[in-house]
Design a protein around this nucleic acid. Structure first.
Lengths: 225, 225
DNA sequence: TATTTTCTCCATCAATTGATGCAAACATGT
DNA sequence: ACATGTTTGCATCAATTGATGGAGAAAATA
């Protein structure tokens, strides 16, 4: 019986399903999570069925439900994993730009972010789709934006204390993020409109972001927020 | 029999369903279109069912199908109507700002656009949701962005000829639009993050857009695109 | 009024959806 | 080999989806 097994703490007792999946990237849990992330990113929550995910992994839906339970729970885990990856990437950028003057900091940050996000396009899709559909639909789990916004605000020198960030500063960071995310997430839609090929698109985006953001934040540097 | 009626051209022979609906705003067609626009804007294409729309109008689904046929056709009409409204509003703005110097033009355009879009929030939702889901899903009708982009580019003095707009100019206009659209569409999601109430939110957004866009486009005014 | 056309709703369809029960397969330790 | 718990897939469920046929009501036409 299970209560006979007192030989120490069973290590997955206090471990979240997401963490369990991350420990072994080849586990069924992790494979499902990967496919789910891709598909949710492509089609959104209601546009993605559990059968689509199961088929992508090559398993039966009941196996999926065995590992992750409800569809909403799986989606929640996908958002968590995405969020973690993004935060990790922000830390990497922070390391590189630390100490440098603001214009250079911005340029490097834009450059690195563009590269990272365009190499993992499902991230921006996932976040933006979530925040659109979720702004109206309360029963879908939602992405935690505020942490990331705060981190960036501090990194960009718009605030000192994580708890004392002005509305204006948050809004400015948000504008930056939204532009960037939209350009990446909407690549397939926007690149034909702009009339640029895949490689050219990324450089046009970088140039545009630099064009728009750098003068604003240089000018506003000494402004009181 | 219908072929006996040769008393002139029957005027709705060459009339699109959308136009027919616009002629009489109280017609069933128009009422369905209105509810559909609202719901598609709130929940996206796959998140909105024909039954939801019918229920909102207070009719049976078969009545809806009688008037609009396939769900995709109705969605298409919704996008068309939205697009027309947006273009009309752009013309209004153009009239007001015509002849004024660039910084003022930008400020007025931002101001008017913000007001218009926040009074018709389903517009931005519709467009953004469409462009996200459609960037991957080809069988859903899609919004015609390029016309609007071109109009704005000319109005902002980034180009002279509608057929000769550089990639950079298009990208810059797009960045402006995307920021604005996202702030409006994401109001419910973003305002708690910023920490602003409903009225305050709009003014913070306007301020932020001015802060970011005006220096960029002033600086870049004499640049060769 | 009579007839034709336009409209509305009920009932129903097949396909798809999220979700589960159960038995067989697999692994793991004794 | 045995008993244990862990995975997996088949079959199936009720609910929901987009969509239609047909009967009758309403409106227009004669």
């Amino acid at each position: 019986m299970f209560w006979d097994r007192f030989d120490g703490v069973r290590d997955n007792l206090m471990v979240t399903p997401l963490e369990k999946a991350r420990r072994d990237p080849n586990s069924m849990k992790a494979r499902i999570l990967d496919s789910a992330r891709k598909l949710f990113g492509e089609n959104g929550y209601s546009g993605t069925t559990t059968r689509m995910i199961a088929k992508a992994v090559g398993i039966d839906i009941s196996t999926l439900y065995y590992h992750w339970g409800e569809k909403a729970d799986l989606y929640d885990a996908v958002l968590m994993a995405t969020q973690e990856g993004l935060k990790q990437q922000l830390k990497n950028i922070e390391k590189v730009i630390h100490g440098k003057p603001l214009p250079e900091r911005l340029e490097i940050a834009i450059n690195m972010s563009c590269d990272y996000l365009s190499q993992n396009p499902e991230i921006t899709n996932l976040i933006l789709l979530n925040y659109f559909t979720n702004s109206q639909n309360g029963d879908i789990p939602n992405f935690n934006f505020i942490d990331i916004i705060s981190d960036i605000a501090i990194s960009m020198g718009l605030a000192m204390d994580k708890d004392k960030i002005t509305k204006q500063a948050k809004a400015r960071v948000m504008a930056v993020m939204l532009s960037l995310f939209n350009f990446i997430a909407g690549k397939k839609f926007l690149s034909p409109i702009i009339g640029a090929g895949s490689e050219e698109y990324l450089s046009v985006v970088k140039e545009t972001l630099n064009f728009i953001l750098i003068p604003a934040f240089i000018q506003g540097k000494n402004e009181t927020l």
